[in-house]
């Protein structure tokens, strides 16, 4: 109850364009992982987690990136970092930067934040881009199956 009362007072007192609650201090990290479409990964709407990454899911990852679905970096131990900015570009609902990185595995330096059970990252520098290294198309074909229209198969 005390938390709610303080929160309501804080909201009323704050000027526009400031966080409602005090933003946390970030931690500098280096992470290596794949740029993924987080909706397909977390929801299971297209299948299991192994199917909605890599070359099999590349086209869908671009659709979701262009469609404004949040992008994340999936590291080898399964941790996902929700991407907030990339090298100064704060457009995380679409745009060239995140579209061109779909399915790529990168090593990146950035600032890490944790909030309400989720991990977030502001990528300050992509140190290395290894391209698409998870070639899983022979296991899964394309995910979804209609990713490539019949006329282009």
């Amino acid at each position: 109850m005390r938390r709610l009362s303080l929160g309501a007072m804080a909201l009323a007192a704050l000027p526009f364009a400031t966080p409602a609650f005090a933003a946390a201090d970030g931690e500098q990290i280096t992470v290596t992982g794949e740029f993924i479409d987080t909706w397909c990964y977390f929801s299971g709407v297209m299948g299991g987690p192994d199917a909605v990454v890599g070359s099999a899911h590349h086209t869908c990852a671009m659709w979701c990136s262009a469609g404004g679905i949040p992008v994340g970096i999936l590291d080898p131990d399964g941790t996902i970092y929700m991407v907030l900015k990339i090298e100064g570009d704060d457009n995380n609902t679409g745009g060239e930067t995140i579209l061109s990185l779909a399915s790529d595995t990168v090593t990146a330096n950035g600032t890490y934040y944790q909030r309400d059970g989720l991990n977030y990252i502001v990528v300050e520098e992509i140190v290395e881009n290894m391209g698409i290294v998870n070639e899983n198309h022979l296991d899964f074909g394309t995910i979804p199956g209609f990713a490539i229209p019949p006329g282009e198969r």
């Binding site: 364009a17 933003a23 907030l84 900015k85 704060d90 609902t93 934040y113």
Partner: peptide, 18 residues
């Protein structure tokens, strides 16, 4: 982005931010 990091812009980023 504003809420997590404190990096805030007007009108929630005008559609460019989650």
């Amino acid at each position: 982005t504003c809420e997590v990091t404190g990096d805030c812009v007007d009108n929630c980023g005008d559609g460019a931010r989650q």
